[in-house]
Simulated scan of single mutants.
Amino acid sequence: MSQVPSAPVPVPPSLRPVLARWGGPGADVPALPAVWVNALGGTTFALRGPAGAVFCKWAPAGVALDLPAEARRSRWAAAWLPVPRVLAGGADEHGSWLVSRALPGRSAVDPRWRARPQVAVPALGRALRRWHEALPVRECPFDWSVPYRLARAVGDTARLRTPPPVDRLVVCHGDACSPNTLLGADGSAVGWVDLGALGVGDRWADLAVATTSLDWNYGPGWQPVFLDAYGIGEDRERSAYYRALWDVGP
């Protein structure tokens, strides 16, 4: 699973000049504190330099993290919702990077919110509903449909060839796990991050992953609270299908 590292993380040599530019003097060092280490191998560094507070994502070559795709999706979604503003990006033979301006708020899995799931969980349900209502399906150039995802799957998809009927097409976040919603001091959503898979699909593609993530981050028993805040009842068939599809994805 992705996590906050407990010690400074080695900085790839090709990333050091990028960090020095955006983090100012002192950022060009062999290791820095990182705010997040992705299960796929990516790392996110937090910096404060001439441009203010920024985040720099790093994806080593060969891992299933497409930072240019995330940059395109972030730029598109920014017209409707608070998402990271892309400042710079690049790549070399060792990997790719993406620099974006920091958003206000804290991740919904910050210790403050993990200790208050009675506030965080309904906020997450309302936040996902807001996301689905705000982004226009007809204007979205990105796909996250079942055929699109099956074509890119890396696991066994034999039992996933016949999906349930679409409940409602929305612009899915694509990784609606709890950490990717930022909450303000009052517990309301103030931003969304990690948009690399954003695209049009059934809303249950997001709902299935979002509800599973609650168990990982807050413990069992919170899924009904989330769904009630979103404004929908449980759908076991669609949840099971999209969780299985998530498990075989890249």
Rank of each mutant, 00 (worst) to 15 (best):
T212D: 15
P141S: 13
A102E: 10
A27E: 05
V146P: 01
H94L: 15
R152C: 03
V171Y: 02
K57T: 08
V193S: 01
R72M: 04
A120W: 08
R243Q: 14
W97M: 10
G41C: 14
V109Y: 07
G196D: 10
L81Q: 14
P136Q: 06
E70I: 07
T211S: 09
E237K: 08
P179H: 13
P147T: 15
S178H: 00
F226H: 00
L207G: 01
T162P: 00
E234P: 00
V35R: 05
D186E: 13
A205M: 08
G249W: 08
L19V: 03
A185V: 08
P12R: 13
V121M: 04
G231L: 12
A79G: 14
L128P: 05
L98P: 01
L128T: 09
V37F: 04
A185D: 09
R48V: 15
S188E: 14
D175P: 00
W97A: 11
L47T: 07
G219V: 04
V11A: 08
G125T: 11
V11Q: 13
D110V: 04
E237L: 14
S213G: 10
G24D: 13
C56S: 04
R130G: 09
V193K: 01
R236P: 05
S96E: 11
F45Y: 15
V200S: 04
D110W: 02
C177T: 09
V200T: 06
P136L: 02
P84L: 10
N180R: 05
R101D: 05
S96G: 09
Q118I: 00
G187D: 08
D92W: 00
S188Q: 11
S74M: 06
T44R: 03
C177I: 10
N38P: 00
W113Y: 10
R75K: 01
E237W: 04
V18F: 07
V86L: 13
T43I: 14
G42N: 12
V225F: 10
L183S: 14
R85H: 07
W80G: 03
L47I: 11
E234M: 07
E234K: 04
L19F: 04
S188L: 01
R130F: 02
P250Y: 15
E237C: 12
D206A: 09
V29K: 01
L81M: 15
R236N: 10
R116H: 10
A185P: 02
G95W: 07
G249R: 13
A205E: 03
V209W: 02
Q223P: 00
V121R: 00
A176F: 11
G187Y: 05
L182C: 03
P147I: 06
A102K: 02
A134K: 00
V200D: 08
Q3S: 14
C140F: 05
L87H: 06
L245K: 00
V248I: 12
P220H: 07
Y242S: 02
G231V: 13
A88I: 03
D110T: 06
R72Y: 07
Y242T: 01
R236K: 10
A208D: 07
A79R: 15
G49E: 09
W192V: 11
V35I: 11
A108I: 07
C56Q: 04
G125F: 06
P165H: 02
G26C: 13
N180E: 11
L65H: 05
P220C: 01
V190H: 02
A102L: 04
G219K: 05
R21K: 08
A20E: 15
C56D: 09
